[in-house]
C-alpha cells in the first residue's frame, strides 16, 4: 500500500507533509521561532495559545509571517 502524502499551501507555495501536524510541529520542523511569527490557517489567525491544538491537514492554506524592515 502506498503512503498518501498530504499537500498544503505554505506561504503561497505547495508544501508536502507526511502526516497532519499541529502548528507548533510545523514551525519546529521549519526551524522557525514561534514567538516571532504569526500564523494564519485558512485565512484565520491562529492565536499562539492554540499552536499545539491547531491541526494542519491536507489542502490547508497556511501563512507564516514575521516582521521585516519597513516604514
Amino acid at each position: 500500500m502506498t503512503r498518501h502524502l498530504m499537500m498544503i499551501k505554505l506561504n503561497g507555495d505547495p508544501h508536502q507533509l507526511a502526516q497532519p501536524l499541529s502548528v507548533s510541529a510545523l514551525l519546529a520542523q521549519l526551524e522557525i521561532d514561534a514567538r516571532r511569527v504569526a500564523v494564519e490557517l485558512n485565512l484565520a489567525v491562529v492565536k499562539k495559545a492554540a499552536y499545539d491544538s491547531s491541526l494542519i491537514t491536507d489542502g490547508d492554506e497556511v501563512e507564516i509571517v514575521n516582521f521585516v524592515g519597513g516604514g
Binding site: G12, H15, I32, A38, I64, V65, F67, V68, G70
Partner: peptide
C-alpha cells in the same frame, strides 16, 4: 515601524 511579510521558508 515594521512591515509584516511572509517568512522566507527556503533559507535562514
Amino acid at each position: 515601524t515594521v512591515a509584516v511579510r511572509r517568512v522566507d521558508i527556503s533559507r535562514k
